[in-house]
Write a protein that binds this DNA or RNA. Structure first.
Length: 738
RNA sequence: AGCGGGGUAGGGUAGCCUGGAAAUCCCGACGGGCUCAUAACCCGUAGAUCAGUGGUUCAAAUCCACUCCCCGCUACCA
């Protein structure tokens, strides 16, 4: 533990097709940076590398859409992400990119080496070729029926239903996802990586890594038990790295093979950048160097099997020491996703909040063991109470008191038991945090940190210097000295999590040399007699603004003017709807519940800002709202309203800026309530539970079913200008709207 | 409906893999203290049949089986 260690911190390479979001930050980049800073403070030699992953089909697709060269896309997001990391104080020693010449060269050399070692062979592959699109299709462009589970929409690379990885040829009834044509399976030559040969070696190596997180280890072992297959490492596409063998001029190296080599190429590039060209070898060849890979859970097999396999095949290079993969961040019940534009994206987050606030919250809530829900309430609450009230206020009250009373650090003269205890606490916290952080247990570490904050507040309270200083000057000075030591310790111990704040506190304590120069161990040393200036407030409290969830909904009254059967779906109708001056087509799954004449000319409710969707070949421009209690289904109708009118909540019109996805809509709780009785100014409503609602919300109505939309679990009644919204048939109270 | 993940005080969580006395922490509620501090801080109290049932065991929140409920992905939900 006390010997200096050399650590390479490898962080997943973000795919350059969009800005990173909070899930990426919490899952990989922040823990990596915390780990890096901690190790620096321990005096270890640390290097942190990452970069943009720029090749591959998704970027090509994006480029085709925008009608630009793929490099334009990757260049844009490379810059954006680099800037995000800089602002978040996630300080890579080098943030490289896979389009760099250095990377390309290292990749080619790597491939040549693997070939020399007998791990590469040429094989022919039967690949799907679409005669209509005139090209070989990437695996995920082919769809068909899964041979294992019979799922009809399995993709060529894997089946989403049973999770098995597939080859496009295995699919039953394959077709091109773009044009629907049945692809021909043509022969094409490709290079293969002999992963199968490494199966035993990998299995043993994985088994020997007893310090890995259980989920990582279990997952990896199960994956290996499934058998390791050789993998093609070239593809018939244009955007990518050239293959260094003749006959492969029109092919490129597969991204999965090439991007992981970035960890190595970036280290080499860094060595050259600082004119220390042999430096990379100390990291990659000296067996005492430890490599940590910070990634999300979707990346586990690549970093615990494939990349180690490639390294074994290459020989002479260090394998990963630990792969502390994190789980997903969930927003409103749905995982963050770049492609679905679902989540909190960093550019927007950084506009509003101090980076250290984001770092602090993220550390407290890191998805280390489970998928973790993000909510703004949680964010505000943790920032305001833990970071600002407990931590910020402690720093502030101590510094302000010392500043006002003495203006400099008072000497420690007389120690009592509690004072010794305080110093013991500082020491113990440092050891405990070091123990956690060296195992990359961020949440435990910051919890330990917060315990010291609480202790500090308690110590200061018990010491009561505002009183003591009048009675016993010497003792009071000691108490203040130790309080300042606590502040100092918090500055040092907090540094990995909230570096900028720690630096500010450090300067307030009078230190000139940077905190990094002192390191972890300095926390237990007494204070220097510096002068203490007027402390500045570390953070302003966040104002909590209430957001109504139903503000995302734009619901309008529509009149059904046509009802037709869906030609190839048993349960669907095609409806023509008039909404004021506008007409829309809606697909509705009501055939089992309503006859056409029951629907025709009815005023109903349309979710107006729902994203369009194709259902069985017909586009649905919105959704007809109906209540469903599991047995009965009822459409919802407005009382006394014209088509085109908007549905109101809490007497206000909603005005969402964006379209809403079906998933988001389903997250918003809307249910049927039955008016049970009246009690003074309130109405008692039975929904899924019993609610008390203000009388005016139901416009004086005293009976019947109503529709409740919830925000923060508080019910609001859906209504129109002149009346309420009601289900036309009787359904159970609590029935959901869909 | 198929697959995956869960159910621990009013809310949010820790603990579960590796069973062991009083189940962790934060918010909220209630009572008290303090007045240095960003209406912050400190102390105390109440509040949990650890989803249910059955089993294994000297001992179960923890292991096993079944049931119920929630969430996600998928789908002729829209």
């Amino acid at each position: 533990m006390n010997l200096m260690e050399r650590i390479l911190v490898c962080v997943a390479w973000p795919y350059a097709d969009g800005p990173v979001h909070l899930g990426h930050i919490m899952g990989a980049y922040l823990p990596a940076d915390i780990f890096r800073r901690f190790n620096k403070m321990m005096g270890n030699e640390v290097l942190m590398v990452s970069g943009s992953d720029e090749h591959g089909t998704p970027i090509t697709i994006q480029a085709e859409k925008e009608n630009v060269h793929p490099s334009v896309i990757s260049e844009k997001y490379h810059r954006i992400n680099e800037e995000i990391f800089r602002r978040m104080f996630i300080d890579f020693d080098i943030y490289s990119r896979t389009s760099s010449e250095k990377h390309k060269k290292v990749v080619r050399d790597f491939l040549i080496q693997l070939n020399e070692n007998g791990y590469i062979y040429e094989g022919t592959m039967i690949s799907p070729y679409c005669p209509r699109c005139k090209r070989f299709l990437p695996d995920r462009y082919v769809e068909g029926t899964c041979p294992h589970c019979g799922y009809p929409k399995a993709r060529g690379d894997q089946c989403d239903n049973c999770g098995r990885t597939l080859d496009p040829q295995e699919l039953i009834n394959p077709h091109c996802r773009i044009c629907g044509t049945t692809p021909e399976f043509r022969e094409t030559r490709h290079l293969f990586f002999r992963l199968s040969k490494l199966e035993n070696g990998l299995r043993e190596w994985v088994r020997s890594n007893t310090h890995w997180r259980i989920n990582v280890k279990n997952y990896t072992e199960r994956f290996i038990e499934g058998g390791l297959k050789d993998r093609p490492i070239t593809r018939d596409i244009e955007w990518g790295i050239d293959v260094p063998f003749p006959g492969y001029e029109n092919k490129r190296i597969y991204v999965w093979f090439e991007a992981v080599i970035g960890y190595l190429s970036a280290t080499i590039a860094y060595s050259e950048m600082i004119n220390n060209e042999k430096l990379w070898e100390t990291y990659w060849k000296d067996e005492n160097s430890k490599h940590y890979y910070f990634i999300g859970k979707d990346n586990i097999p690549f970093h615990t099997i494939i990349w180690p396999g490639m390294l074994m095949a290459h020989g002479d290079l260090n394998l990963p020491y630990d792969v502390p993969a994190n789980e997903y961040l969930i927003l409103k019940g749905m995982k963050f996703s770049k492609s679905a534009a679902h989540g909190i994206f960093m550019p927007e987050m950084l506009e509003k909040y101090d980076p250290d606030m984001i770092r602090f919250y993220s550390s407290m809530n890191m998805p280390e063991n489970h998928d973790t829900e993000f909510s703004w309430n949680d964010f505000y609450s943790i920032i305001n109470t833990e970071l600002i009230d407990k931590y910020g206020n402690f720093i502030n009250r101590v510094l302000k008191f010392v500043h006002n009373r003495y203006g400099s650090v008072p000497p420690a003269l007389e120690f009592d038991d509690e004072d010794y205890n305080a110093i013991k606490n500082i020491t113990r916290t440092g050891e405990e945090m070091a123990m956690y952080l060296s195992k990359v247990e961020i949440k435990n570490a910051i919890k330990s940190f917060m315990n010291l904050v609480s202790y500090g507040n308690m110590y200061f309270d018990r010491a009561a210097p505002w009183d003591l200083c009048r009675k016993d000057e010497k003792k009071c000075q000691t108490k203040l000295h130790i309080s300042l030591m606590l502040v100092k310790a918090l500055s040092i111990y907090g540094y990995p999590f909230i570096p900028e704040t720690s630096r500010r506190v450090w300067r307030m304590l009078g230190y000139i040399d940077p905190i990094e120069k002192y390191g972890w161990k300095e926390a237990i040393n007494p204070m220097e007699p510096y002068s203490i200036g007027e402390p500045s407030i570390l953070f302003k409290k966040l104002e909590i603004k209430e957001e109504y969830e139903w503000n995302r909904l734009d619901i309008r009254v529509g009149r059904i003017i046509e009802v037709n059967d869906h030609p190839n779906a048993e349960r669907l109708y095609l409806l023509r709807i008039k909404i004021g001056n506008e007409f829309r087509n809606i697909v509705a799954g009501l055939k089992a519940h309503y006859r056409p004449e029951e629907l025709l000319n009815r005023n109903i409710l349309i979710l107006y800002n729902l994203e369009e969707a194709k259902i069985r070949d017909y586009v649905s421009q919105g959704m007809l709202l109906a209540a469903d209690d599991g047995k009965n289904v009822s459409i919802l109708v407005p009382e006394e309203a014209e088509d085109g009118e908007r549905i109101l909540f809490n007497n206000s019109e909603t005005n969402p800026e964006r379209k809403i996805s079906i998933k988001e809509f389903q997250k918003i709780r809307i249910e049927i309530g039955k008016i049970m009785g009246i009690e003074e100014d309130n109405v008692i409503v039975q929904g899924k539970m019993l609610y008390k609602i203000k009388n005016e919300m139901v416009k004086g109505k005293t009976e019947g079913n109503i529709v409740l939309a919830f925000s923060n679990n508080k019910p609001f009644v859906m209504h129109t200008k002149n009346g309420l919204v009601r289900p036309i048939r009787d359904v159970e109270p609590g029935a959901k709207i869909r």
